[in-house]
Nucleic acid binder design. Structure first.
Lengths: 188, 188
DNA sequence: GAACTCATTTGACATTTATCACAAAGCAAT
DNA sequence: ATTGCTTTGTGATAAATGTCAAATGAGTTC
């Protein structure tokens, strides 16, 4: 993929990015095509990138004692990464492709350097983080207030594609129940 | 309290704020002393402020059908607010004083205007948000992976003052159990 | 199509936690 | 100290969910 194509894509995804910031931003972006199961970010390691999904999907999960708990899923047109990576720390999560996907990857270290002098880029990164923060708050709210049956229902209504693309085991862990329980509650 | 005193305090709390940004920042800060039970931010309303706690403590909670669930607690030297307020949206949470407290309040709208032209202030707000995001991720992790007994233990070990200053009912809701259950598990 | 693998469903049972009711303890005002 | 109020603790029971085991179903390979 040519740099000019990447530029067009990035421009359309981040319309608030000023023209003069765009060039610098693009310098740290590159196209990436990869297969199902590939890990974009692995738990315990430091990484340099965050990603924009052009095609495909990913899951994020924590693992502990051979148990995996999914924290979120993302598909086409979403920006993904981990906040620990942004902070230069080892990631606590793993981000893995759910299917063969196409992405644009951005060098986070380089782009952080740009935020030191470029307001437009600083605001862009800000808004990406805030979007994630709002998502986490909503998720916590649902875990604390809603029954597992309702969480399942709300998820199905808001993003039915998750049930097509993600295994029930993973959806169950995301909803905070075992797969057996999810299997039962969703038929009721 | 004189402006010069506020300036000293703010400067010491936000050492990364550049000297030339500090003056503009301080213009939107003021001292506030208030009594237990006062609501700094009320659910459903738009607000203009975030706060730095000089003395005292607060709790944040969501309420639904007369049930309250605490989302976090904060004490001396912590910055508090809601991300929805920062985004100019009505708050989903209520923030209430746990005891008579002294605070500095900052006008969020005005400071957001400053972030449009001031990198130093933009970065400061960023880092405050990121700190909160890391907290939310840790909390989600604990809710998904740890037993209620362990969550209780970890909370007691990390911030014992919560058990002194907050009612068991509130702590229980924060930990995701009923107060009866918390009463039982903590004695075991 | 048979054999194999993997995901999902179902059943039986154990465990945890919620719920409801009430008792005990702590605290403030008189 | 007595009264009233709020918070915390305890007991009995019900509901939800976890755990383990086995069955079914769907997809793949030979």
């Amino acid at each position: 993929m040519y740099e000019s194509e990447i530029q067009e894509i990035v421009k359309s995804y981040f319309p608030n990015l000023k023209e003069e910031s765009l060039d610098a931003f693009i310098k740290h972006a590159s196209y990436l095509k990869s297969t199902k199961g590939t890990k974009l970010i692995s738990e315990g390691k430091r990484h340099r990138y965050f990603y924009l999904i052009l095609k495909g999907g990913v899951k994020s999960y924590y693992s502990k004692e051979s148990r995996e708990v999914c924290m979120w899923f993302a598909f086409k047109n979403e920006v993904v990464g981990t906040i620990t990576t942004y902070e230069g720390l080892p990631s606590k999560e793993t981000i893995e492709l759910l299917e063969d996907s196409e992405l644009i990857k951005f060098n986070i270290e380089k782009i952080k350097v740009l935020t030191l002098t470029d307001l437009s880029i600083s605001h862009l990164m800000n808004s990406i983080i805030i979007k994630h923060t709002l998502f986490l708050e909503e998720r916590l709210y649902q875990l604390q207030f809603m029954t597992s049956k309702n969480r399942c229902k709300v998820l199905y209504e808001s993003t039915p594609e998750i049930f097509q693309k993600v295994s029930l085991t993973d959806v169950a862990s995301y909803l905070g129940v075992t797969r057996e329980t999810l299997s039962r509650i969703r038929s009721k």
